Computed example of a mutant assay.
Amino acid sequence: MVLSTTAHQEDTAMLKTETPARDHATLDQYPTTELVNVFVDDQVKAVEAVRAAAPRIAAAITAALPRIEAGGRLIYVGAGTSGRLGVLDSVELNPTFSWPHGRAVALLAGGESAMFVAVEGAEDDHDQGAADLASVKVDAGDVVLLLAASGFTPYVLGALRAARSAGALTIGFSNNADAPVANEAEIGVVLDTGSEIISGSTRLKAGTSQKIALNTFSSGLMVRLNKVYGNLMVDFRATNAKLVRRAIRLTAFASGADEAAAKAVLEQCGYHVKTAIVALIKQTSVEQAQALLEASRGSVRDAIA
């Protein structure tokens, strides 16, 4: 079922994200410096909206953790700006935390080409959202993140309802209260950013708030999955010269060894930072360090305790 544009407009007509901002009615007449300041200052409201939603984001991490620990996937679903932000978050998990590509799936209304060229009508297709979700064989072990600034996007709602039918955990992100994306998800995260300076352009602070919320959710989840030691990024792949240097610096910093010793151990373990840190601190072999990490479910802190 493709929801008509008219019906979609009727659903969203009175939403805060669609309401003109009365305090900037002469925006087109602002001097350029003032124009820039207004845009920048308005972004502060994105941070405030995410801070207000922090308890819901924490609840989402807690609910997602058991499924992800058991081997489930993170599946992002969205359209337009929201969908592209979901793609971005999913793609960055592998280089940052060595998260397997197959366990971070992003579905974007209009398909992969919509990442680069807007496919505006695709968001109105409820059935395609359900079909796209079914195509990745979602099941009860998965965590599905539904992203829609309005909270009414038919494509996202189709995927949401299909995810619930499959038993997956659903987490809905919306920039409007009392919208179905948040209300129908098991955990709804409302990012109340209000009206936009350019009326209806949710690529502004609504988009910023979604980016912050997704970063916070996925990074918090990765911390709980032992991808971080202290506040150090210790579970990444050293796939280029910059990352090799980073691996050496972090290993030396975390273990207290000099960089030469850190590099020597890293070379023995294929530049796996966790293994090198444990081997250096425990003064043991790479093989024993790997065994300690496996026994501690990947936690550097527990492995060296």
Rank of each mutant, 00 (worst) to 15 (best):
A106G: 06
V138G: 05
L108N: 04
T153G: 15
A122R: 06
A106W: 01
L93Y: 04
A130P: 02
G121F: 08
D142V: 10
F116V: 09
P95R: 05
A104G: 03
L133C: 15
A149I: 07
S150D: 13
T153L: 09
L93G: 03
G141H: 13
E123A: 11
T81M: 13
V138Y: 12
D124Q: 09
A106I: 01
P100W: 15
S113Y: 10
D124I: 02
L147K: 00
L145K: 02
G151S: 06
F152L: 14
G141N: 11
F152G: 01
V91P: 14
H101P: 05
V138E: 08
G129A: 07
L108S: 08
V119T: 12
G80M: 02
K137Q: 12
V87Y: 04
V138T: 11
L88Q: 07
V144I: 04
A130G: 06
L133T: 14
T153S: 14
Y155M: 15
D139Y: 06
G129F: 04
E123D: 10
D127P: 01
S150W: 05
G141M: 14
A130C: 03
L146R: 00
K137E: 04
A79L: 02
V117D: 12
V87Q: 00
R84W: 13
S135L: 09
L88C: 10
R84P: 05
N94T: 13
V143N: 05
L107R: 00
G158T: 00
G129C: 05
S82I: 12
T81A: 10
A148H: 03
L147T: 04
L146Q: 01
H101N: 11
A114Y: 09
L108F: 05
P100R: 10
V91M: 09
V87L: 05
V119H: 14
L146C: 06
F116T: 06
V144G: 15
A140F: 10
A159W: 04
L146W: 00
A122H: 10
V143K: 12
P154A: 03
E92D: 13
G129S: 08
S150L: 03
S82V: 05
L88F: 12
N94M: 07
G102F: 04
G111W: 13
G110Y: 02
